[in-house]
Design a protein around this nucleic acid. Structure first.
Lengths: 137, 137
DNA sequence: CAGTATCCTTTATGATACTG
DNA sequence: CAGTATCATAAAGGATACTG
């Protein structure tokens, strides 16, 4: 995720608790920017659904992710404390990933979003069709 | 958001309700991929917090977004049926944006994530510091 | 198997200038 | 003000080859 530039700096419309609120919002935005990544969310979903999984299996469940992106996503999530990586020293290597408590709590927080997505797929598709039709006509 | 390639196709570990579950999951992933965009989430947050706003104001609250990305994000959200765009035919132009019911419902679903982010900023930063220290040492 | 390393193409985004 | 258009560049992502 690229760093955000300094154009259009945030303002405080309510001058009273200005500084603090803006700071908190900026930090929250930063954290959301970190986890609101497509593959992070999908891997989170997969590990929530299926529990502890091996590297290749996660890729299969995620659907269409390259090895590179899977490694990268899992490393980031490990670094953020969302997943725990366990290496079993056998040949061939067996590496298993599972959500940490922090990761589980994030998944729980995202649960509402998954349900929303499941419930509103059609509504979005209709809205898009209507928008495109209006633009064309 | 780029289309996902067809490498590592999704599998059905439980052969019983295989086809259906995989299809639903794929659709949900697709929708999540659409809305799990950094600026979409931030604009959603801003409009949730402040209600109806003008173009420039949204940019100010969002913090660090370029005009181009703001336009693009708002158009996408409008197309997805998440925001309503109202043009007041005056000079200078006055264009106001507010969330639709669908947008509000998404914001509600994301509420848990915002709270989570707010609550876990420090935990993530600690995890990162620990991970980096372990890697270095 | 579970990666790492590299190259290369596609996308995303920013900067800038212009317009109704 | 609220955009649009264009250019340039940074970043993301995929394909491929290689390794413990």
């Amino acid at each position: 995720m690229p760093a955000r530039s300094e154009r259009l700096p945030p303002v405080e419309p309510a001058p009273r608790d200005a500084g603090h609120a803006a700071k908190v919002e900026a930090l929250v935005n930063e954290v959301i920017g970190r986890v609101a990544d497509k593959w992070t969310m999908i891997v989170l979903e997969v590990l929530t659904e299926h529990g502890e999984l091996r590297f290749t299996r996660i890729g299969e469940f995620a659907g269409g992710i390259s090895q590179k992106m899977l490694t990268q996503t899992l490393r980031q999530m490990e670094r953020d404390g969302l997943v725990l990586r366990t290496v079993h020293p056998v040949i061939p290597p067996r590496v298993e990933y599972r959500l940490t408590d922090l990761g589980l709590s994030l998944a729980e927080a995202f649960c509402g979003v998954w349900l929303w997505a499941e419930a509103n797929i059609e509504r979005i598709e209709n809205a898009r069709a209507a928008f495109d039709a209006a633009k064309a006509g």
